[in-house]
């Protein structure tokens, strides 16, 4: 997992590795921004997959079809980036893993940071030939509401809410702890250094061999980023509660709240 320059590493890839692989057909870069942003400029040879397109038919079969259209075969090395702290890219990368794709990673920076580094961009769209991808579901990285409800009572399971602090205080899944997604990044990178990520878990008393389930507000983006932050330090058993708090509330499951304090009034928003 060490980051040898010019190698595609997992789960994040450094900028130099991508620069040297831009014209390599065995690597597919996915840009997870809106189409109009992509059209105004993107990393050379990147294809566009707005998160909305993926979510519009979020069945494994429709996901496979989308990735096939982007020219992604079983052995294609995929690298994903966005401009939303890596959260949307994480959700796309996680979906690839969920349908059984082995070789997928996140670019360590966002598109804005890529540009700030003065690196090349392009408005040209690459010519992509559609291909075939198999479907081998990887259910152990996904949590459903039902699974979560049972699992969270167990001693070795930790449930992490990645929404912002005030949202968490107002309502959350009982028994969860809060690590806001902003905590996961560092200056200029979408993820913390491994050392500081380990330190955060250590301070919070979260054992790395626990089963960790992450969730956020609605579709598993912020918690997708947390999934990869945990994977970056090699936590073996991480699951994404992909339908997150929105579904939990819709199912009218119990909700926890920090009572008797008007914390929202401290916000200057």
């Amino acid at each position: 997992m060490c980051s040898l320059s010019n190698e595609i590493t997992y789960p994040t890839v450094d900028v130099d590795a991508i620069r040297s692989k831009i014209n390599d057909d065995s690597v597919r870069l996915i840009d997870v921004r809106r189409e109009e942003d992509y059209n105004q400029g993107h990393i050379p040879n990147a294809v566009n997959l707005p998160l909305a397109s993926l979510l519009s038919g979020d069945s494994p079969e429709s996901a496979v079809k989308l990735f096939e259209e982007l020219g992604i075969a079983d052995d294609t090395k995929v690298v994903v980036y966005d401009d939303t702290f890596g959260a949307l890219a994480s959700r796309v990368a996680w979906t690839l893993q969920y349908i059984g794709h082995k070789n997928v990673a996140l670019l360590e920076v966002t598109y804005s940071q890529w540009k700030e580094l003065g690196l090349k961009t392009s408005t040209e769209k690459p010519n992509i030939k559609s291909t075939k991808h198999s479907l081998n579901l990887n259910p152990e990285i996904m949590a459903t509401a039902e699974y979560l409800e049972n699992a969270k009572e167990k001693d070795n399971v930790v449930l992490i809410d990645n929404r912002e602090r005030l949202n968490f205080l107002e309502q959350h899944i009982p028994g969860s702890i809060n690590i806001p997604y902003r905590t996961l990044a560092t200056d200029g990178k979408i993820l913390r250094t491994k050392e500081s990520m380990r330190n955060l878990l250590k301070n919070r008393g979260i054992p790395e061999d626990a089963e960790i389930i992450t969730y956020c507000g609605s579709v598993g983006t912020l918690s997708g980023l947390a999934y990869y932050a945990l994977k970056s330090i090699g936590v073996p058993n991480v699951k994404l509660y992909v339908n997150s708090f929105k579904e939990w509330k819709k199912l009218e499951k119990p909700v926890g709240k920090q009572e008797n304090a008007a914390y929202w009034d401290l916000s200057a928003e």
């Binding site: 912002e164 205080l169 902003r182 905590t183 919070r204 008393g205 200057a268």
Partner: peptide
């Protein structure tokens, strides 16, 4: 403030800056 608090900070009457609702472990 974004990483460990509520995304806002508070300037006090004694020239301090306060970060509220921080998890003790953080």
């Amino acid at each position: 403030s974004e990483m460990y608090s509520i995304g806002s900070a508070h300037v006090s009457t004694r020239e301090n800056v306060q970060l509220h609702w921080v998890v003790l472990e953080d």
